[in-house]
Structures are given as C-alpha cells and as structure tokens.
Design a protein around this nucleic acid. Structure first.
Lengths: 201, 201
DNA sequence: GACGGTAACCCTAACCGTTAGCTTTTCAAA
DNA sequence: TTTGAAAAGCTAACGGTTAGGGTTACCGTC
C-alpha cells in the first residue's frame, strides 16, 4: 500500500544479494553442477527454503538480469520515438545487450554457463519467455499493422539474433548480418512497403 | 556384429513400446505432472531403472519421434535434388511436419503438452537441438555459399516457423506467411542473388 | 510505548526424477 | 551345455524442490 519504505525491504534485499553473490562465487569456483543448493545455503548462512523463496530455481541464481533483459527489449518497442522505425530501435538495443554480455568482465560467467547443459537449457527457455513478451509488445503497437503471426515470428527472430551473435567469433558483425536478414523479412510483411527498403542494399 | 536378428531385439522393442504406451495412456488420463515415473513403471510392470534404460528422461517418453523429426529436417537439405532450391524444399518438409502434428488425432497429446510447462520447455530444447543439426547440414552444403552465421540464423528461423505455426489458429497459412519472411531474409544473404527472387513479390 | 498482524526466515521431512552398484534372468553363439 | 553378454531387476541413494508448521523481527496503529 505505502511506499517500499523501511528496514524490512533492505534486509530482504541484502539477504537476496548475499545468496546470489555467494552462489555465483561458489559456482565460478567449483562449477555449477558441482555445487549443491545445500552448499549455497550453508555458505550464505540461510535455510534452503529461504533460497527458494528468493529464487525460483537453482539456475535462476545465475540469471539475475532476467527481468531487466526482458524489460529493455519490450521498452525498445513501446518506448521508441513516435516516428522512429521499429527495426533500428530493436537493433540498437540488441547490440547493446550483446556488447554487454560479451564484455571481458563477463567472460568467466559465460564460460561457466557454457560448461553446464542445465544452464544452457535454462537460458534458452528464458529467451523464449522474452520472445513471447516481445511478441506481445509488438502486437500491441498500433503503429504496426502486421499480423500477430508476423509479430511472433519477428520476436523469435530477434531473440535468435541475440543467441547466434553471442556465440559467434565476432558478435557485432554477426548481429549486423542477421539484422540485415530480419530487415528483409520484416519488409515483406508490410502491406504497402511504407517504411521499408524497397531496393535491397 | 551380426544382423539385428532374434528374439532379444523383439522383446526389447516390446518392452520399450509397452513403457511408452503405458506412459502416454497414464499421462493423457491424469496429466503429465500428476503421474510419477514410479507409477509408469508399476503400471508397465517393469523396474524404474528399465524405464530410464529406454528413455533418457520422463519427458522423452512423450516425444518418441524426436530423432525422426531431426532426420527429416536435415534430409530435406542434404537429400534434395541437385538443382532444387533450398527454401522450397524446407518449406515443403516443414509443411508436412506441421500438418502431421496438427492432425485431429494428435490433438489430445498436444493439449496434454500445452498443459505442462515441463513438457513445453522440453519440446523447445529439443527444437534447439534440431536447429543445431539443421545449421550443421546447411553449413556443410557446398551449394550454399552463405556464412555459418547466416546458416545458423536460417536454421533457427525455420524452427521458429514450425513453432509459431503450430500454435496459430490457421497453421498452414501462418507457415506460408513466415516462410515468405524467411525467403526474403535468405535472399539478402546471397552474394549476387543467384537463385533468389530479385524483385520481391 | 504496547500491540496485533504479517513478512521473512528457520527446521524437518518428505516427494520426485534420476543414477550407481550389484544381482538375476534370458538369449545367442560355441 | 557351457559361456558371454545384453536386458532387466532391486535397493539405496543423491540433489532440486516443496509442504507444513513454528519463530523472530519489523511495520503501522492504538
């Protein structure tokens, strides 16, 4: 009801951060699969049930920016300038996300993720949720006359672009290449080719 | 060493089929999440370990055609006529797959799948494996001069087409629409527009 | 400042998918 | 018939996850 005032919230946030930090440290040290939830809980000095009251699953301990990722994607659609074309906005946002997660400082984490099939699968199912959210945002935009089918396809294409680019040797170049494909795909969904690129490159 | 002759193989296959059939029946009756592996084993009159010696996971009991799906996709690429263009071949194959899994007889199974988040996630991670296999097949085709990035993107787009179409109210129309997008996307990856559709529709 | 409600946390004990270790059965080839 | 091996079985456990029920600490109110 009232604002998020108070000590309680701070303590809760502190507990959450302590759990996440402890977990990440242990995971990086010994590998994701070699660390049990009971280890994390003991090291963070909380009960196992407390871990699961803050995080929905063991994998979720690693992907804290989950909600952030999704919000940034949808806001690239809903929050763009009134006359700004869709795809450049999406391209820009995804480029920032790719750059962020291919930074040198993030390398150890991604090495850890790639070493665990559980984490890799979790990441992809996360991405699917993001695609669904993006598809909803696209379908709700009155400036886009496309069908819901086209919106859903575009949403998944954009997520694909992120996923493929992240694993490429040159992520930025790969991303640009895929977005050229996506631009072309999106162009053919325009009833009259309003703001497309009618002549190709 | 010798041919797959004999009673042993038949008995093994019979056990496998009995487990799968029993499992599917129970899942359809009570719902996937409400049936435990121990239930399946008991009802099929086998040990729990036997279930897992035939199927890698509980979810795998539902998706028996897994390998088949993947093989059909890759064969649509590797087994097409020497001068047949790529995308129509893929389009045709995916159309058949969509038709197959949207048949009325398959409806109860898909209702069951959609009712279980575990199954939906499993299906998607299965699809990702298929996309990876398809990407490999595409990259290995000497008739395709595209980059591996483009091949990986195309593979995922094709899987997306299947996934989105399957959930659409009119799967066939949706599939055609998405493949129009994919055709356009693929066209811009051709260095010189060899066999593309140079003027768009 | 005392008070009632409730959110956060703790503990125990389980459930469920999955696997390891080891024994028994069943078939095939000699 | 003997022998080797694949298939199946049993038991017991591991690890993620949850239910149930109790304790503490904070918040808003009197």
């Amino acid at each position: 009801m009232t604002e998020p005032s108070g000590r309680r919230e701070r303590k809760k946030a502190a507990t959450r951060r302590k759990i996440a930090d402890t977990a990440l440290r242990l995971f990086l040290d010994r590998g994701f699969d070699a660390v049990g939830i009971r280890d994390v809980a003991a090291e963070a000095d909380v009960a196992v049930t407390t871990v699961f009251s803050h995080f929905a699953s063991k994998e979720a301990l690693v992907f804290e920016q989950d909600a952030d990722f999704e919000r940034r994607l949808t806001q690239a659609v809903t929050g763009r300038a009134p006359d700004e074309p869709l795809l450049p906005a999406l391209h820009r946002e995804v480029r920032a996300l790719v750059r962020h997660c291919t930074a040198d400082s993030a390398a150890p984490v991604w090495r850890m993720i790639d070493a665990s099939s559980a984490l890799r699968e979790y990441e992809e199912s996360m991405r699917l949720r993001h695609a669904a959210a993006l598809a909803t945002a696209l379908a709700a935009d009155p400036a886009l006359p496309q069908t819901t089918t086209a919106c859903r396809a575009l949403a998944r294409f954009v997520i694909d672009a992120y996923a493929v680019a992240r694993e490429a040797t040159d992520p930025q170049t790969a991303l640009d290449e895929i977005f050229r494909m996506i631009e072309a795909a999106w162009a053919v969904t325009c009833p009259a080719g309003k703001s497309g690129d009618p002549a190709g490159t």
